[in-house]
Design a protein around this nucleic acid. Sequence first.
DNA 1: ACCTGAACACCGTTCAAGT
DNA 2: ACCTGAACACCGTTCAAGT
Lengths: 230, 230
Amino acid sequence: MTPPRTPRRTDALSKERIVEAATRILDTEGESALTFRALAAHLSTGSGAIHWHVANKSDLLATATDGVLTRVLAEVTSDGEPREDLRAFALGLFDAIDAHPWVGAQLSREPWRQALMGVYERVGGLLRALGVPDRALFDSGSAVVSYVLGVAGQNAANARIATPGGADRSAFLAGVAAQWARLDPAEYPVVHGMAAQLRDHDDRDQFLAGVDLILAGIAAVHEATADPGR
Amino acid sequence: MTPPRTPRRTDALSKERIVEAATRILDTEGESALTFRALAAHLSTGSGAIHWHVANKSDLLATATDGVLTRVLAEVTSDGEPREDLRAFALGLFDAIDAHPWVGAQLSREPWRQALMGVYERVGGLLRALGVPDRALFDSGSAVVSYVLGVAGQNAANARIATPGGADRSAFLAGVAAQWARLDPAEYPVVHGMAAQLRDHDDRDQFLAGVDLILAGIAAVHEATADPGR
DNA sequence: ACCTGAACACCGTTCAAGT
DNA sequence: ACCTGAACACCGTTCAAGT
């Protein structure tokens, strides 16, 4: 009489289901909670089974990241006024990374390369619709994309730092603001003066203000250098 | 007769020496090579000794990151024309992260918060010297800082992806450019058209172009909204 | 073809024991 | 006070064995 093995699950495992479960763990418990053992438990299977569908952890993170970004690309449509479409798209990326902060931490990983292509395409297309000449599309697009990713990364950082402590975001900001306010105004005149703004600002508003700033710069530079022979 | 223990080292261990060694490992062998065992071997001590000086790995990474950023703040002076000073400072951050790509990956970690204060102070001060009104300093400064960090993060990503493969940066870029060129122009008209620019562009130049774009935007918005009653 | 779960080589961290 | 190095509880990944 052999010892009873754990009964085989009926619903088949698949890379899709694994990535789905991984995303849920990342969203709810954070990056450090995503282990193959935890994942296996969630899916009531063995860790080896996961490795049959997923090459390794990097592959898993890559696919999950790609999923989030692909969804943004698909869900945020660009069929209106280009300026508004661009703001909406940027905001879509912002919100996606806000909802899945771990994606911001994947910035420096492979998966982004593929997704970034789609992002560049979208941003470039909208900039072109705004009248940016083709030769300026690369630099302008790169500036927009870099800015968006920079904010995303910082936001991911804040989300990470804030949550572990248990305090929510506004309490966290208030704490940093208080620290800024306490700085010696002689040594840190600017930051000292920013404390109140830091405490009260809205991340999304500030993000959009930055997008508008860059668009204004693109418009200014573009008009200034608009080549006559074109 | 007791078995001979490893002779006690004469030069005292210190947090400073540990962080120095850690930085060297990070720079030369990459982030994955930094383990307490490797570090202990480099310093010919035990892993426990390191934990006596350094709370944990996070503390170690934080201190190393802070060191790099502090050095940039100290070495890049700002005593000339504000616009040039700002470009030089941004470039200083760019180069530092280019030289220590692992710093870019620390973006979403605690250590940055302290260093970021100094960065905001410097950038804000220069923007003010450029004529940006105080109330606009926070948003403008945030835009500049976010952009710089975004580029830094992406560069760290490229450095990471490129080096493991053994190919150097230009070969890596050529590969990605070739991939972009191969894309269906009907589906990816913009990115397809950017392939040549991607292959030939200079990272530093493009970075500075972005800084200039943002500065142009700040100037434009500032002039447009310059309040008469001030 | 797909899954199980023990085994392996590693990791950060702790800690009794030394000097 | 500072250091040593074994021990502990983890981790990703592999793999013989099952169905």
